[in-house]
Design a protein around this nucleic acid. Sequence first.
DNA 1: CATGAATGAGTTTTCATTCAT
DNA 2: TATGAATGAAAACTCATTCAT
Lengths: 192, 192, 192, 192
Amino acid sequence: MPKLGMEPIRRAALVKATIAEIGEVGSLEVTVSRIARRAGVSSALAHHYFGAKEDLLVAAMRHILATYGAGVRAALAGATTPRARISAILHASFASDNFEPAVIAAWLNFYVHAQGNTGARRLLTVYHRRLRSNLVHALRPLVGAAADDHAETLAALIDGLYIRQALGAAPDGPRAEARVAAVLDRMLEKPQ
Amino acid sequence: MPKLGMEPIRRAALVKATIAEIGEVGSLEVTVSRIARRAGVSSALAHHYFGAKEDLLVAAMRHILATYGAGVRAALAGATTPRARISAILHASFASDNFEPAVIAAWLNFYVHAQGNTGARRLLTVYHRRLRSNLVHALRPLVGAAADDHAETLAALIDGLYIRQALGAAPDGPRAEARVAAVLDRMLEKPQ
Amino acid sequence: MPKLGMEPIRRAALVKATIAEIGEVGSLEVTVSRIARRAGVSSALAHHYFGAKEDLLVAAMRHILATYGAGVRAALAGATTPRARISAILHASFASDNFEPAVIAAWLNFYVHAQGNTGARRLLTVYHRRLRSNLVHALRPLVGAAADDHAETLAALIDGLYIRQALGAAPDGPRAEARVAAVLDRMLEKPQ
Amino acid sequence: MPKLGMEPIRRAALVKATIAEIGEVGSLEVTVSRIARRAGVSSALAHHYFGAKEDLLVAAMRHILATYGAGVRAALAGATTPRARISAILHASFASDNFEPAVIAAWLNFYVHAQGNTGARRLLTVYHRRLRSNLVHALRPLVGAAADDHAETLAALIDGLYIRQALGAAPDGPRAEARVAAVLDRMLEKPQ
DNA sequence: CATGAATGAGTTTTCATTCAT
DNA sequence: TATGAATGAAAACTCATTCAT
């Protein structure tokens, strides 16, 4: 039983437990004690590593966004055409990892939380900007000046599908992805 | 000197205060005391009229949905063509009353809340069904069998625009409406 | 069993319990729960009326100073000569009410607390200024320009006797008073 | 690479850090972690060397009293007349080392702490006895039977000046010393 | 109709202390 | 000799909720 280098392990476990707990409770009114118990440690340890509950929540949000960002980047790496780039983004967005119930629930909760919390809002803004930039970048060669507008619409649609998934019984990534793709197709059909 | 017939007045004031408070705090972690103070009554009275806090929250949600529903119905009343019906729904969705910051914030919070609360979920399901039914009904003459699918897409887009508004500085109803209209136009352009 | 107008009663009981508790524990590391229990109420009520623990402590300090101030004022009212004025101040300082163990202990603790707490410090500064002003006022006709200096010395001596009383088994007000009077006598014997 | 003979170094560093920390916080509600960090070691080490926090506090107090005692002894060594002996005691009491803010703050805190703590009280009693004995010893040849009484008064005055210094902005040793000397002079002027 | 009074239950947070390495 | 890891215990504080008036 190693006693050194536990920090990263505990941090990861706590972040994971936080997401799971939010997913289960369906709200951020989750107790540090329960999160800690789920992670197999005392609540004191959670505070030891993360400070306040808020920091733990932000860390969880950051984790989700980082995972999502990594997924997008990986998918983009293999895309050669503009259209493929967009598909890559969509695919990553609705990929199983980011689209499992607990993650969606946590995502949605953070979305709400960002309304009143600076740290969370900052994180979300970064995500927004990145998604938008990726979409615009890929759309530009295809639709020119309309890229900005279309990007905004697609981003909203993605978020809308996410939010609806949070309430649906079983999430269906491929179907959501297809839905966005359909809208995209119409955009490209007759640009402008 | 206790007045008669105060009940509806108090209830309305409390519901209104609840929405305002949620809008200000940006979360459902709002205290009954503050809501009551905002409504100019004691917290005991809030419990007297609504029972538990949860019931007050659900009442607020019901109020928002009712207001929205009434707006849609009123708008539909003046619409003669299918296309006009859809426009009416969209217009009502992004009309100033339903689209002011506090209402959007409350809406979003209830959306999240519905994940773990039966009463809230039921209410939301009703809203979902009604929106969908309205859209399908209007789309059917225009796109036939694709109506279901398109309705789903439009509904998701509406929700997505709502959620994004919750974080944006100033909500912009007309712009959001135009965005959905643009997607709709493309759907109708080349049906199926 | 009256249910209205309890606030002043509870506040007084809590302040009294606070002083008693500090006297017993001998430190400000006293819990709100114990204070509340001693006052016969729940700890929640203590917070309800006083806000934070700190505020309760400051209220207790303010109470002690107010009692002391009232005692001094009452004693001064009957004093006609300068010398009698000083005696009155001393007598009030070491009077049984202000000189009972719990009060001395609380006083001393507040003295320390004032080092790091703005509210407490302000209160103590007021006490200091008032004591000094009273002493200077009474000494001036007797010793002229040396009044300031003598006042300072007497004040320090009073505080020193207080602090020592805090550790002694049984406080002995008359003896402490006599000690200050002796120093005072020598000051007046050969002024300046 | 663990070094040998570190114990005295660590102990001294921890005691010093304790006094500094108390001076900064202005209370004994100081954490072992912070003291340890200030001393450049882990909190576990503080416990390793001192056992409980309480023991560390007592060690700090003992250090202060020992330093003070050494100062007095050194000063007394050079004093030949009774009057010079008293001056030596006073001078040592208000010498810069014992009279710097952190030390005064710690002293005052220990004074309070002694109310409820046996170890601290014992230490303080020893200090009291020693001071008193030194003063009486020096006063006896000058004032005879009044020595006891005068010693008590001087000791109280010294403590009072200390306590007042704890709250004053900048400590002023020489001035405090002069104040005691003035009272002493009057005592000696007309013995009895 | 309305509220001041009151509290139980719970939550975050802090900290001294222990222990295996 | 020294520490990172970990926790139990306790404390402050909050809040929904009840009740007598």
